[in-house]
Design a protein around this nucleic acid. Structure first.
Lengths: 138, 138
DNA sequence: TTTACAAATCGAAATGATTACGATAGAATA
DNA sequence: TATTCTATCGTAATCATTTCGATTTGTAAA
């Protein structure tokens, strides 16, 4: 995902370019994992003194709606990361220290074909949490 | 899980019996799946007019701490269900129609030993959603 | 049964994350 | 540049949850 692509998707959907939006995208593209609204705010304040909370949260919602960002919840707050462009179904390992997300190649669903033969499976949620090699060796 | 067992665990840990606590346990034992603090409050208010939010949230926290309840987050709120008494680690299939939860025998973790050889896995979340045989055939 | 005291509850205020709003600034288009 | 929405600002409101001083209650010992 490039900033340009994100901006293009914004415009296709009738939204305007702003430097703040480009910077928000840049922030999440460079962050390899989940980040909070608070963390984004801290980052944005370095470039835009007095930026409004409205701007932070409104754009986070917009980007998630446009599927430029994905989110999950933890300890009562929402965490965001750049969306995975690969259209194929996959799961993630999430580093609890730095937030890095590693896409996993396998899906555990086949494990249960036998056990749930009589059941109709619609969806599933699967995430692994721990420490990435970098954080583990520190 | 019986109400008596829950009360016993409360006492073993130096907490007192109250009718409200017994009723909270009853509520979650009879509930088929996850319930919100708000839903519990609505239920409790039918028996205890003017019950304090403090009582609701304090006991939810206590019960989760004592592992009588388990929780997950959705749409900015915490949802609770009665904990599974079997001490062994397992996952669930959850029927989206009737709320039935079927404990699963297998855990998908071994699938990833190779892929995450350099990673330190602490925890994982895995749930399957769909229709149980009864609901599917209706 | 009564007493004593820590724990539980109440009523209400505080907190933290998020959302909403009226006024102003700014991007896009002709 | 003039026009027209959209975006942002500054601040207030909202929602779930936590906290707190005062009061009540469970429970164990007298």
């Amino acid at each position: 995902m490039q900033v340009d692509e994100g901006i293009a998707i914004l415009k296709e959907n009738g939204h305007k370019y702003t430097d703040k939006r480009a910077d928000i995208l840049t922030y999440f593209i460079h962050a390899k994992g989940y980040r909070s609204a608070k963390a984004l705010l801290a980052y944005m304040e370095t470039s835009y003194t007095g930026i409004s909370l409205d701007t932070i949260y409104r754009n986070l919602r917009l980007f998630e709606q446009l599927e430029l960002l994905e989110s999950r919840e933890k300890n009562g707050e929402k965490l965001f990361k750049i969306a995975c462009k690969s259209g194929t179904h996959h799961h993630h390992f999430i580093c609890e220290s730095c937030g890095l997300t590693k896409p996993l190649q396998k899906c555990p669903l086949p494990v249960y074909t036998e056990e749930l033969a009589d059941y109709h499976v619609n969806t599933h949620a699967f995430e692994l949490y721990g420490l990435c090699p970098t954080c583990h060796n520190r």
